[in-house]
């Protein structure tokens, strides 16, 4: 009953991930945001075939903010995905929802407007428009998540492992900076970070792609210690995001979460198991990137 959803960066990695997760999350960066890799149409088709052969599901990211040129191009893409048998798409632009309704595209969608998805009422609004689920904002506390879980009419997805995007600009902010200081460098490298004024230890990932500039929280999320709370609260869709955790390290992390899932479903979850999971994750997590429980452990009253 718990669904593990993981990003995939290659067919090879996907094969291994499929041993542990229920759903793979892939896409191309013309329509999907902040993916580990942008796949070609042929690769997406192959991926969908591979996943279906393993009896698993594929969700495709169509969650970008689309300007006119891309809202035009998205229709053939959605038709391609329906034809290729994608099990669902994530959508964050109401224009896409409008198009799917008008053209009767048979593709279930999950509402995913990133930072904006913050209440059950909002999720239910999109459910009325046919959304079969929603991806929740990362700026939600435990109390809020549990309330949303109770009131939402469709299942909601929570990030249990990975990076949190906290800013998207259409501008090329890193390139602009390099241009100003006269350096010939690229903002597209995914090894760049910002540090906050007077907090030199902070490390906010930043990179650019065709969708602009993306900035991520200083700590990646791991809810290893909260999985029982999620399960109890009916929050059963767990996203593992491998944007910054590459190759086999991410496969190992997915494997650990699957072990946890099995224990939880067998009612054998213990504090020790949670501690063990956290240790394993830490071990495979990229050096220099730290983990915490994000907004899950904040008090809603402390946020002004």
């Amino acid at each position: 009953m718990i669904e593990l959803i993981a990003t995939a960066e290659s067919l090879g990695q996907a094969e291994k991930l499929l041993e542990s997760v229920d759903t793979l999350y892939i896409g191309e960066d013309e329509f999907g945001l902040r993916l580990p890799v942008s796949f070609s149409r042929a690769e997406q088709k192959e991926m969908i075939g591979l996943v279906h052969d393993a009896g698993r599901k594929v969700t495709v990211a169509v969650n970008a903010l689309l300007h006119n040129d891309r809202i035009q191009a998205v229709l053939p893409y959605l038709e391609f995905l329906a034809e290729a048998g994608a099990d669902a798409v994530t959508v964050g632009d109401p224009g896409v929802i409008h198009l799917m309704a008008q053209h009767k595209i048979q593709l279930p969608y999950l509402y995913d407007a990133q930072t904006m998805v913050t209440s059950a009422n909002q999720v239910n609004f999109w459910a009325k428009w046919g959304a079969v689920g929603a991806v929740l904002a990362r700026e939600l506390t435990k109390e809020e998540l549990l309330q949303i879980s109770r009131k939402a009419e469709v299942p909601v997805e929570v990030l249990v492992y990975g990076a949190t995007c906290i800013h998207q600009s259409k501008r090329l902010l890193v390139q602009n900076y390099f241009n100003y200081v006269g350096e010939a460098a690229s903002g597209q490298e995914r090894t760049l970070f910002l540090s906050e004024p007077k907090k030199e230890d902070t490390h906010y990932s930043i990179y650019e792609d065709r969708n602009g500039t993306h900035i991520f929280a200083t700590n990646d999320v791991s809810l290893a210690g909260q999985l029982d709370v999620l399960k109890e609260g009916g929050l059963l869709r767990w996203k593992l995001d491998g944007l910054f955790t590459k190759g086999d390290a991410f496969v190992q992390i997915a494997k650990q979460f699957n072990e946890a899932k099995k224990l939880l479903e067998a009612d054998q979850w213990t504090m020790d198991a949670a501690g063990q999971l956290q240790k394993e994750i830490q071990q495979h997590h990229p050096v220099g990137r730290s983990l915490d429980e994000g907004f899950f452990v904040k008090n809603p009253e402390d946020i002004e």
Partner: peptide
Amino acid sequence: ISYSGRCTLSNHMADRDANRGGCTQSC
């Protein structure tokens, strides 16, 4: 500097919700 609404710098850096009136102009 961001797409409006798609920025939670304030939430993460200052515990102030940018989309509920708390933007600290962290940009």
